[in-house]
Each structure stands twice: as structure tokens, then as C-alpha cells.
Amino acid sequence: MIISVRVQQILLLLTLLVIGISREIIQLELWALPLALLSGLVLQGIGDSKRRRKWNIASVTISCLSLCLLLRTQNPYVLFYAIFFTVLSKFLIVYKGQHFFNPTNFGIVVCLTVFPNLSWVSPGQWGNYFFPSLALSVIGVLVARNAQRLLTAFSFLSFYSLMLLTRYLYLGDPLSIFTHQLKSFSLVIFCFFMITDPRTTPRSFKGQILYTFLIALTGYLLQFHFYIREGLFYALFFICLLNPLINKLFPAKEYQWAKKI
């Protein structure tokens, strides 16, 4: 039986949610998941009907689950706003008929900015463990099943690791600090499940390389020089803004979901 990439992603996100909740990594309020899914589906439905498109259940489900996985809040209104901004970015912030912000990331960044006292992200809560992180990376590779996604993930991971390595060599720190940073489970989630959305990554090979390099660099600088712990999310937000420009610099055909390796 062939399960589509999106269904695989949904299953994987659900698995991560279950693990997260049972391991006390995520403290999800009881209302969170139903609220997120319900409001997400309704908002997507409204948007799709205005555009006269088919109701895109899979896409919005992925966004809602990702939000529940990454954004922490104890306030239902904040979660609703997060979903609202996520879906809004898909329909309203478009360039040449294509949204260019990673929707989930847009929702997270807007919430962190508008509600700094009511929402937060907890990247450290997943811990830094070699095997779980490796396992998730392998699953990430298997689920990606698509050259473009893999390219995004690996080129980001290479650039980012290279920056951490440079820092480690410059500071003369013990190797364990470097490996500790690389073992971060949150980093793997970000790498394989956030930045790899083919719709919001540049289409060409060169564009991809530039895109991931800029995210890695901005994320690194925000985290290690400006001490902004949500650095990677902000980095993705700002670099997504450059996507139309990157696509102009390095033009290529639009991404199609059916395209496989």
C-alpha cells in the first residue's frame, strides 16, 4: 500500500506528539489538539472555498500538528491566533500565486512576537540524545522520498554543523560541547520537518543551497551572538521573505507534489 508523503508526515507528527506527551516533553492542554485541528480545518475550508479549490485537509492538518508540537501556550486564544496566522499566511501572503512563508513557522514567529508573555518555544525539552536524533534523521530521510527535500535538509545540516564546528574550534571547547549541540532532537525536527516544505523553498538547486546557507547563518548568529534562543525560527522567517528574490536569481520550474525521485 502506498501512503502519500503527506499522510506519512501526519503519522509521524502524531507519533512525535505521543512521544512528546508521554515523555513530558510537551505539555499539551486537553483543549489544544481539538481546538487546533478544528479551527485549522474550518479556516482552511473558508480559504479554499473562496479560492474555489479543493479543501486541503492534509496540508492544514500538518500545520496544526506541527504547531501543537512546537509552540507552547496555556492560553486557547493564543493557540487560535497561531492557527489563524498560519492559515492566513497561506492564503494572503502570496507572490505570483504562491505563498512563500513556511506557514507553521509564520504562525510561531507572529505569536512569539505578539504574545511574548503567553507563548514560548522549548527547544531544549527534547533533549540531546544520539540514538533518538539519529533515528528521527533516518525516518526524515525515508519520509522525504524526494530529492529536493533531502537536498534542503542535508545542505542546511551541513552548513549549520560547519558553523558549530568553527565555533568549537575557535573557542577551543571540548568536543563534547560540539557533539552535544549536534545531538539536539529539536534541530533534527527543524531540519527535516520545518525547513524542507518544498512549497516554501527555492526551486533551483543553487537557490536551495543559498537558502539553507542563509538560514543556517542567520540562525547561528541569532542564537550565539544575539542570544535569541528562538533564532532558527526567526531565521527561517526572514529568509523565507527572500524566497521570491532567490527564485528570480536562480529560476526553475514550480514544485509539483507528484514529483518523486
Partner: peptide
């Protein structure tokens, strides 16, 4: 100990008031 906590402790203040 150095093996399990190689890096300094970095903190964040969250809005969690539970």
C-alpha cells in the same frame, strides 16, 4: 559532571505559570 553536562547552563524564562 563534565560527561553529562559538557556545556554551561543556558536558561530561558517561559510564560508557563502552572
Amino acid at each position: 559532571d563534565g560527561e553529562h553536562f559538557p556545556d554551561d547552563l543556558r536558561f530561558q524564562v517561559t510564560s508557563n505559570r502552572k
